[in-house]
Design a protein around this nucleic acid. Sequence first.
DNA 1: TGCAAATAATACCTATTAGTATGTTTTTAT
DNA 2: ATAAAAACATACTAATAGGTATTATTTGCA
Lengths: 196, 196
Amino acid sequence: MKKAEGTRLNILQKAFALIYEKGYQTTSIDDILATTQVTKGAFYYHFKNKDEMGIAIINELLKPILASSFIAPLQNDKNPVDTIYNLIHYLLIEDEFLQVQHGCPVANFTQEMASWNKDFSHALNEITQQWVKTMAAVIVKGKEKGQIRDDINARQVAMFVASGYWGVRNFAKLENDKKVYLSYLKELKRYLNTLK
Amino acid sequence: MKKAEGTRLNILQKAFALIYEKGYQTTSIDDILATTQVTKGAFYYHFKNKDEMGIAIINELLKPILASSFIAPLQNDKNPVDTIYNLIHYLLIEDEFLQVQHGCPVANFTQEMASWNKDFSHALNEITQQWVKTMAAVIVKGKEKGQIRDDINARQVAMFVASGYWGVRNFAKLENDKKVYLSYLKELKRYLNTLK
DNA sequence: TGCAAATAATACCTATTAGTATGTTTTTAT
DNA sequence: ATAAAAACATACTAATAGGTATTATTTGCA
């Protein structure tokens, strides 16, 4: 990796961490410069403006994270119920990047930016839809294998699960307590079993 | 109502509308002054600072809204499944204040403020817990009446439903389309029926 | 090696931010 | 009616925001 690309990536990563903690609007360029030890000249060499950096974070960091942590675990051949439950369990309990007090980065970005920056909402919608789509595909496969009832609407279930995930992240953020997750997971398991 | 209380309320209401649209951090005092036609002197006579106004919005506006729109509809004697479904349907489809492109004000506030202002998160948690608690009570009642299965954990279900509600609000915000709600509601109905 | 292009550093600018100081007008109570 | 208190108005401040202009330093390559 060239040195220049290193600074670019450094900016993206540190900025992402800051934004995940503090929110996009309240993370200033100067904040980012302070934690990256990068100067303003370097920053604006790599990014036209703050929003362009935000989009880059979504496309170059969030997208891969989603692919590896949210989507890849769905690609196995167990039954959908276990696969989906295990994924959500992993995301809520085990994943060491996602912090209870900061919620879900994708949801945070959405809440903050969706209604007034089309580039942001477009990029976010893209990665979200991919998650839902993959989850739906898993369920369809399960239907074919007879692991899931015929009358189940796969996409509808996927959306329902994804919504619950986002919501419980917000809930736990409010209480700043992982216990909320345990309660949620129990009900999720019960719910998923009704798909059989 | 005294005139002074009128200006105070005016500030709270207009500020709330602005914050619901644009977010708390990005709504400046000057924004609020411009839309209320109130001067800075008047503003700071009524509120010590911006955050105190934020807390006042939560306690004096959000709380009553929650009580009337989220909690009161739960106080009837139909069965929990219909009661809860109708509530969520009302909130997502019929309520004319909540806008699809702006999500849920409580969730917005939570996402933006919870992790770095304890007063905010405390006030928000209070109203949220009240909603969940009431929903749980409805389910408990249903269990007693034999409308809900015995092995159902009332609080767990209430949390699950509330999470889904918050999550789907965020989802629809991203797509800026109420269609998402319809899909969600179908699955919610199916889920709620598994409680019987 | 040298020089052009890529990368980075510094100093600055204007707008906006939350908040204050100080004054003026309204209300209220007597 | 009047004085005191409540309510509001105006002008300001210091800090911070995102962004730019200009200059300096590296880097790749002929």
